[in-house]
């Protein structure tokens, strides 16, 4: 039987997070127990939520993170390898099979910035990935980003340049800082992709 008033998947996600007002939660729950179609949709949302958890836990997303998030990950037993080159500097780095997360820490004063992008470039400075509009707290002193751990474990020795880019009033980009990561492969594997 088709539902006359299907509940939106985003509302079901709010329900799953216990983020609905109690009156709305009550009516959603009554509907879910009575409606097979919306209950099945909730099961899809639950699968999506569980999938998101797995994807996040795998540490294979290229993304920025908060220091707080990192601390909790460490407390949960994850082994985190971190490198923090200075602005304009470089750092020798690697990754081992035991590592669960690989983090780059980019020190920068972003207090006057409205929008910051993180660009990842090869050793010739050619950009191959960008995280636009990095979230940061007021008075930030660094940007933390996660390199996908499985990618890093399989990567040959190579150099990566990370650039923090600001945007001025006209929208033009401005270099805030550049950081060089010189990766040496220590896990056996092919010399190139």
């Amino acid at each position: 039987m088709s539902c006359a008033h299907p509940i939106d998947a985003a509302i079901l996600a709010d329900y799953w997070l216990a983020a609905l007002p109690s009156s709305e939660e009550e009516s959603v729950e009554q509907h879910l127990v009575a409606c097979g179609q919306c209950s099945a949709r909730l099961a899809e949302v639950v699968a999506l939520v569980e999938g998101i958890r797995t994807v996040a836990r795998d540490a294979n997303l290229l993304m920025t993170l908060s220091d707080e998030f990192l601390k909790r990950s460490a407390q949960s037993g994850l082994r985190i390898r971190q490198y923090a080159p200075s602005v304009g500097g470089s750092v020798e780095c690697t990754v081992s099979v035991e590592d669960d997360m690989l983090i780059g820490r980019l020190a920068a004063d972003l207090s006057s910035e409205k929008q910051v992008d993180l660009a990842l470039c090869n050793q010739d400075g050619v950009e191959y990935a960008r995280i636009a509009d990095v979230p940061f707290l007021p008075q930030p002193t660094e940007v933390l980003f996660q390199q996908p751990i499985e990618f890093a474990k399989g990567a040959p020795s190579q150099t990566m340049i990370a650039r923090l880019l600001g945007h001025d009033e006209s929208g033009a980009e401005r270099l805030i800082g550049e950081y060089t990561f010189i990766h040496t492969r220590t896990i056996p594997g092919p010399a190139a992709f």
């Binding site: 997070l17 939520v49 998101i52 958890r53 994807v55 996040a56 836990r57 997303l61 290229l62 993304m63 920025t64 998030f69 909790r72 995280i131 636009a132 509009d133 990095v134 979230p135």
Partner: peptide, 19 residues
């Protein structure tokens, strides 16, 4: 799909559902 989201969207879902 998660990698394809904008960074703020990714933060919100990771912080909400994982963290």
């Amino acid at each position: 799909c998660v990698q394809g989201l904008k960074e703020r969207e990714r933060w919100v879902i990771v912080m909400s559902f994982y963290d």
